[in-house]
Design a protein around this nucleic acid. Structure first.
Lengths: 189, 189
DNA sequence: ATGTCCATGTAATCCGTTACATGATTAT
DNA sequence: ATAATCATGTAACGGATTACATGGACAT
């Protein structure tokens, strides 16, 4: 299982609490690996038991106490040894593709709405990636770490760009499947 | 859960046994939704209990008996009503991207091997998709069902093409991270 | 007053993977 | 002989999702 390694990888950046990790899994590393706070707290117990992280409780006045986790030497070794396991691409399970596969049996309006929602999300995500690209990776010499981040970012850019244009094409193709229906509003002329 | 609907969608094509369904989930529909035979047999029990499929046992002489499943009226309704649930993109969890994110902490040779393996797979899958495109969707008028299938195929083509060129770029970038190492064989000149 | 942020958890359920099991037929 | 194909399952485990729970601080 790789949730453990995803957390360890985060902690190579800096020591963090479970809460901060959970937030990180909603943004940066979350682009590659999704995890909820419940998963993270559970896994942190395990990582501590295995000696991959050290923990230190910090008593706070106004706020709840917190526990800061730091990656240990054994944790770093674990990342390296995990990196030698060759994995395959993750399995695909996408409702939208399933719906397309049965396009003649489903509600086309609902699917059009779904694709349109996704189009919005892909555009928004693409904008985020393009901003990161411009701000952090423009025309500089990159070290190993930054090279890896940039390659990951490029997977994201490629994916989002691909889906943006695919969604546009799909919406047009699905609209063409219903030539008899009234088009969704504003087709009054 | 959508495994149920994935099976129902398959059964809109024709009645099938669990075994045939399992094979289908290794090819055509398996490009969009992976499922093992154990999952399928378990789910078929449930679908029958819910009245979404009808089953008929066929006694065979030379071979083991088999059970043929047919989608029912209620099953078709279920597909339609499921198609109205708006879902979001599936969560990403990819070891390879995680390794990239920690490129300075991992074994670069192992990652290069992993990416190279994936490159082979992406090329092979792309060839399959291109053949399907040429054989089944060249220059004809398409009905609703075929339109959906073609749109799905295009997602596949886009994905595989993107990854093929990304893998090539990534291998070059990772090789450039180790300028001091002996290049993997045949760098004798 | 209502909601968001900080900060951490437990419990139940569902889903997917891996391993184990059987047994005849047909192809190399 | 050996492997693949046909055909169907059970059992155990582990990971992910969803729901529930607490409670103060601070902003609108």
């Amino acid at each position: 299982m790789a949730l453990a390694e995803a957390i360890l990888v985060c902690l190579t950046e800096r020591p963090m609490t479970g809460y901060e990790l959970a937030k990180t899994f909603d943004s940066s590393i979350g682009f590659f690996w999704r995890a909820s706070h419940q998963q993270i707290y559970r896994e942190l117990q395990q990582l501590r038991a295995d000696g991959f992280v050290d923990s230190k409780e910090v008593i706070q006045a106004d706020r709840p106490n917190k526990t800061i986790y730091t990656i240990s030497r054994r944790g770093l070794d674990q990342i390296r040894s995990w990196s030698r396991d060759l994995t395959d691409r993750p399995p695909v399970r996408d409702n939208m593709l399933l719906k397309l596969y049965a396009l003649d049996r489903i509600d086309l309006d609902a699917l059009a709405t779904e694709i349109s929602n996704r189009l919005d999300r892909h555009r928004a995500r693409l904008a985020v990636y393009e901003e990161i690209l411009a701000k952090r990776y423009s025309g500089r010499q990159l070290g190993t770490r930054a090279t890896g981040r940039l390659l990951g970012l490029k997977v994201g850019l490629m994916t989002e760009r691909g889906y943006v244009s695919w969604c546009e094409e799909a919406l047009a193709a699905i609209a063409a499947c219903r030539p008899k229906d009234a088009r969704p509003v504003r087709s009054r002329s």
